[in-house]
Design a protein around this nucleic acid. Structure first.
Lengths: 236, 236
DNA sequence: TATTTTAACTTGTCCATACAATATATCTGA
DNA sequence: TCAGATATATTGTATGGACAAGTTAAAATA
């Protein structure tokens, strides 16, 4: 018999409302006292729930005003956890160069697969990101077919795979491991990125852990950092 | 008249004890109730202080056991906030190739300087990190002379500049901005890193913000990722 | 002796309350 | 009309207490 934590229930309730846009971005949540009445509890418990959502990056708190719903989950590490879309201010165009399809696992994936994943086929798709009509990032993605059905790229919410996971499937990114290398561009990559063969390019392998136990998302990114270096900032 | 927050006082007290090794790494802090008696307050307030220290990465909490003092501040972003030393498990040797000395600011620094910084001279030093006697990282560092005296490399605590700041000067890293590029190695870099000119190398510009208001640390890293890629992981 | 139970101590959750600090709209007076 | 005071709603800090859950070592038991 598992103990249900009240603050966790409230936390999940609010999170789901945010994900389904019942509490839309930039709006303010009901006040702490209103949640107290709604859930028949005290501010201590409501505040604990809100604090968890703060840590998860779903809300921001403003003293004297309220708790504001944030646009996206917080970012940490090299890239936004919501993928490339959220990591730059420039206008990014995305072209799906390989539609999601079921294939065998590609040995290029830089992480060991679990037994469950190995025994499953996988869904693969490839996208290229453009800034000012110049290709800047080539991105390969894989995930186990057994863990999640293939999603057609036309169904991506606002063109974002991660937004789709969050809003349509209620799957959240829990964390990630990344590996970065500076490598010479291969002929294939150079062609797709419009650069010369052997030019230095940033290669990033990523494994995203998700809130769905058996679902990992694998990514393989090639970034032309000549004009647009990767930026990130963090604070403690 | 600024309001003193009790939990913040307790937080700073414990932090200083950790920094000065009065609470050494891997030891357990006094229990929450003991702190209550010591500071004449309640567990709510003590727990708030401990939670802040948890977020800052100074301690880990273990239910039923206590709060354990951690070895290093937590890491986020690309590299450990404590610098390169903490970011790998391999045996790293560090050679100081340029002793800390007062120079003019180098225009290579990829961040705009504040007026205070511009009007000051700066302290500069360069180190090379070796793994298996092969150079892997070349690191330049700068900071404003007005904000912090030059520290001789022989005085570095355990050879680490960041540990020295924390333990000798009680200066903590509050956050950082980074910029990553994949670039061809210049003649000078190639020579020092033992690679061929033009080989792809990872270039990272970093600005660390510290707890001392006017002190920023600037870094300029060249990493040979051929054998040792940069790894990082994070969780939400 | 070896195992199980118990007791003591730790952190985790939750309740009920009070007042401080901040933001915003409303009222008041010049 | 407009500036300043005021009232109200919000989050922030803090008190004091209770019981749950996990850890450990001592005590009881086989």
């Amino acid at each position: 018999m598992k103990k249900i934590k009240k603050y966790h229930q409230i936390q999940e309730y609010i999170k789901k409302r945010i994900q389904t846009q019942k509490y839309p971005p930039d709006s303010y949540l009901p006040s702490e006292n209103e949640f107290c009445v709604q859930f028949g509890t005290t501010r201590t418990t409501v505040r604990k729930a809100l604090e968890e959502l703060l840590k998860e990056g779903f809300i921001a708190k403003e003293q004297g005003k309220g708790s504001k719903v944030l646009e996206r989950g917080k970012y940490l590490g090299l890239l936004s956890v919501k993928g490339f879309s959220g990591s730059t201010d420039y206008k990014v165009k995305t072209r799906v160069t390989v539609e999601p399809k079921v294939v065998e696992w590609d040995p290029i994936i830089g992480f060991p697969l679990s037994e469950d994943e190995k025994s499953s086929k996988c869904v693969y798709f490839q996208r290229v990101r453009y800034i000012d009509d110049k290709p800047v990032v080539l991105e390969n993605n894989w995930y186990a077919l057994d863990a999640l059905e293939p999603i057609r790229s036309e169904e991506f919410v606002e063109g974002s795979f991660f937004k789709t996971l969050s809003q349509e499937y209620l799957i959240e990114i829990m964390g990630a491991e990344q590996e970065l290398r500076s490598v010479p561009a291969s002929g294939d990559i150079a062609k797709k990125m419009g650069i010369t063969v052997g030019a230095p390019i940033l290669h990033i392998s990523i494994r995203f852990r998700t809130s769905r136990p058996n679902l990992n998302l694998y990514g393989d990114l090639y970034c032309n950092t000549t004009d647009y270096p990767i930026r990130n900032s963090y604070f403690l």
